[in-house]
């Protein structure tokens, strides 16, 4: 005798890809994204009231995901991090299921684009080649006409500059 999916499986089916993309956009690798996604839904099984409104359920899941990511950074690095708990502007998790201004995984991409735009040209270039085009250090160095050693120094300084700019934005 088959019954349809139960409430948890329905919530899961509706949100697993969105939650995974949300997490992946912030941790940048599959193993961490899988661990944190699993953590969100295991917590849902333990604590989510599936009788709530769909908007409330969605907001709850994304808030749990946000906290899981914040805990991940704190535990992972065991170092003080600035602005880890800040929610990107425009995305306010709310119990009343308030409208989201942009899909959660889009906000991270917009923030990254804004930071890249504020960088000096050489810094922006090295980060674009490494991250957006997924080039190795050797390939990046060749494309920019510098040595691999210099490319590593350049990407280090570029990220440091970008991180400082990010702090200024988050305030």
């Amino acid at each position: 005798m088959s019954t349809g999916p139960g409430p948890f499986e329905q919530v899961y089916g509706k949100h697993v890809v969105g939650i995974y993309r949300f997490v992946y956009a912030r941790v940048g690798n599959r193993p961490d994204a899988e661990d944190l996604t699993a953590q969100v839904f295991v917590r849902a099984v333990e604590q989510l009231d599936t009788a709530r409104e769909p908007g409330q359920i969605a907001a709850w899941l994304y808030r749990v995901a946000q906290n899981a990511i914040a805990d991940h950074w704190r535990a992972f690095y065991r170092l003080p991090l600035v602005g880890v708990d800040h929610v990107a502007p425009g995305w306010e998790p709310a119990d009343d299921g308030a409208q989201r201004q942009a899909p959660p995984d889009e906000r991270a991409s917009i923030r990254v684009q804004a930071l890249l735009g504020d960088l000096p040209d050489r810094y922006r270039r090295v980060l674009e080649l490494r991250f957006l085009q997924r080039m190795s250090v050797a390939e990046t160095a060749q494309a920019m006409g510098i040595t691999s050693g210099n490319a590593k120094v350049l990407q280090y300084r570029a990220l440091r500059k970008a991180a400082l700019l990010g702090d200024a934005v988050d305030g």
Partner: peptide, 30 residues
């Protein structure tokens, strides 16, 4: 650590086509 977190966001933002979960992972969690 701040730089690493930013790098993770850049890595995550760049992989729009690979940002979908592994189907085996999805099934196991289901």
């Amino acid at each position: 650590a701040e730089m690493a977190r930013l790098a993770a966001e850049m890595a995550g933002a760049a992989s729009r086509d690979t940002a979908d979960p592994d189907p085996a992972f999805v099934e196991q969690l289901r």
